[in-house]
């Protein structure tokens, strides 16, 4: 068997992993930082998706121009919810957080069905992102290459921000030891709002980018929740790098498994997750 097909599959798996990374990194950070379980995370991703669909289809915006807006609107809306609702539950039990956020996810599903209907939303991507070309004998999808570039760029930006900015230092401190960070005078809540907005914005961006690969309809907010939770738990709470590694690993292993052992197709992602969690209950790069 030539190597070409395998590289193609690996490449596609990595691109899929980047999508998972964008969708889940925000949840990992907020969960790690405030112990806040936000099951409505994918609702913000869905919002980003609908922003892009509305702008391209109804107002004729080019696809790429809608992406920053998908990010910003998801981030802004999430801050509104954070201030109105989430904030009150930081000290409440995790079960109350589950109930609140699953309630919001339910509402988002119904609102999306009401506003946009139940139909699959098509998205118009620019022609240079469509189709495929041959790269060193491997057939490469243009859009997947774009996804990988986006994933890597955002990973780089986040790493730079977390490692080299003042905000990043505060964020790391708050994730490591929230009480100590407060004691040192760090505005943990303030840092959290920014991290929350950033995370939801990235989810929004992920939602917009996901349409081309997995489609978009009103059930998105619940349908991808499981995948996002898997990435977060396998990667480790509060770890950006962990989410990146976990998402790439899951994307690639899923593809390889389906290529070589299609009979195991649906089992694979769960088997991998359980194996990793038994080996490292705190996730690949988690500290707790």
């Amino acid at each position: 068997m030539a190597l070409g097909p395998i590289f193609g599959v690996l490449f596609d798996g990595f691109a899929y992993g980047m999508l998972l990374f964008l969708l889940s990194v925000g949840l990992s950070v907020t969960l790690g930082m405030m112990n806040f379980i936000n099951l409505a995370h994918c609702a913000f991703a869905m919002l980003g998706g609908y922003v892009t669909v509305t702008l391209t289809n109804r107002f004729g915006w080019p696809f790429l121009a809608t992406l920053p807006l998908a990010f910003c609107i998801a981030a802004l809306v999430s801050v509104v919810f954070e201030r109105l609702l989430y904030r009150r539950l930081y000290r409440a039990g995790e079960l109350d957080q589950v109930l609140l956020t699953i309630g919001l996810a339910f509402m988002s599903v119904a609102v999306a069905a009401y506003v946009f209907g139940t139909v699959q939303q098509p998205v118009e991507t620019p022609s240079f992102l469509r189709g495929s070309f041959s790269l060193l004998g491997v057939s490469v999808g243009a859009y997947r290459l774009f996804l990988i570039a986006m994933g890597l760029a955002i990973m780089l930006l986040l790493t730079l921000m977390v490692e080299y900015t003042r905000f990043g230092a505060q964020l790391r401190a708050a994730v490591d030891n929230q009480r100590m960070a407060r004691g040192l005078g760090i505005n943990v809540e303030g840092a959290f709002i920014i991290a929350f907005a950033l995370g939801s914005g990235l989810a929004g961006l992920g939602g917009a980018l996901a349409i081309e690969i997995v489609g978009l309809d009103h059930s998105f907010a619940l349908a991808y929740l499981i995948y996002v939770l898997i990435v977060v738990s396998v990667g480790g709470l509060g770890s950006i790098g962990g989410s990146f590694v976990a998402a790439s690993f899951l994307g690639i292993s899923d593809m390889l498994g389906k290529y070589y052992l299609p009979e195991l197709g649906a089992f694979l992602i769960y088997l991998v997750m359980i194996a990793i969690l038994i080996w490292r209950p705190a996730g690949l790069l988690g500290r707790r």
Binding site: P5, D12, Y16, D254, G257
Partner: peptide, 18 residues
Amino acid sequence: RMPVANPDFSAFVQRAKD
């Protein structure tokens, strides 16, 4: 046979193409 909830098909398509 592919999983019912299957977001990404490229591995299966590659198998067919081989």
